[in-house]
């Protein structure tokens, strides 16, 4: 579904440039939830933003749902973006539109008619359980509710892929947990492939099927969640896991493997 092949990216700077990604190869298969974990500055955000062309890369190749991002062109990129939803840590809802208006936004961009939009908005409000907030403005919603609106908006065009950029990182554990449960439900029931990045190991370990560990722009380890988090090969991964353990209790039960 999403295939990174030997991707490298360097941000230009005065002293020659900062490498954000180094030779990253990664394959996200259809209908799975893939999580990339790493600290701030490891290149997670860059990695995710490459998928819908918010960032470009220097070397390697990236194919998303059969589209080669180097040769897609403007039209191809626009089509790809309309087939790929994205949610953000800070939600990024439009303040001048109410909940229904925000969810309708991507549908308006696609030129849907009013009745179709209204029908789809109702469906989506049902999925994210926000029917009674339809006419509220984002400013009066809680963080969790705003993220639900953002999820509904991202799903409006029935995308095959959902990109999650630290989607639960500014939420409290309970609200964040509910959002993760919702994402899992969307993956299971709507068959949406999810690529998420987070610095919270708990978020990744909770819903991802496979995980990758990004350190200083390099993908140092990847595989099934139970394997990477249960039997980490790299010292860095071990360190990440140990710092997330509560009272020595591992996040993933080793027997699962």
């Amino acid at each position: 579904m999403i295939e990174f092949q030997r991707i490298s990216k360097t941000y230009p700077s005065k002293d020659g440039g900062v490498a954000a990604l180094k030779n990253v190869s990664l394959m996200v298969t259809s209908r799975e939830i893939f999580g990339v974990i790493g600290l701030s500055g490891a290149g997670k955000s860059t990695l995710l933003r490459l998928v819908n062309g918010l960032e470009t890369f220097d070397e390697g190749s990236l194919t998303v749902d059969g589209v080669d991002l180097k040769t897609s062109g403007k039209k191809g990129l626009r089509d790809l973006r309309q087939n790929t939803g994205m949610i953000f840590q800070h939600y990024h809802l439009l303040h001048h539109r109410n909940v229904a208006g925000n969810i309708a936004f991507p549908l308006e961009l696609l030129g849907y008619r009013k009745p179709e939009i209204n029908q789809r908005v109702e469906e989506l409000l049902g999925i994210v359980d926000l029917k009674e907030k339809k006419h509220h403005y984002p400013a009066v919603l809680s963080g969790g509710q705003r993220q639900r609106v953002a999820i509904a908006r991202a799903l409006a065009t029935n995308p095959k892929i959902l990109l999650c950029d630290e989607a639960t990182s500014s939420l409290d554990p309970i609200t964040g947990g509910a959002i993760l449960t919702l994402l899992e439900k969307i993956n299971r029931e709507c068959g949406v492939t999810i690529l998420m990045i987070s610095h919270q190991l708990s978020a990744v370990s909770r819903i991802c099927h496979r995980v990758g560990v990004l350190k200083d722009g390099e993908l140092i380890e990847q595989g099934a969640k139970e394997q990477v988090l249960g039997y980490p090969r790299e010292a860095y991964t071990k360190l990440l896991i140990e710092s997330s353990e509560i009272h020595g209790k591992p996040l993933v039960k080793k027997e699962v493997v």
Binding site: L54, Q82, H92, L93, F105, P106
Partner: peptide, 14 residues
């Protein structure tokens, strides 16, 4: 917020 612009871009807005 520039994030709003990026969110719109991620939806394919011109």
């Amino acid at each position: 917020e520039y994030g709003l612009v990026e969110a719109a871009q991620s939806m394919g807005a011109t």
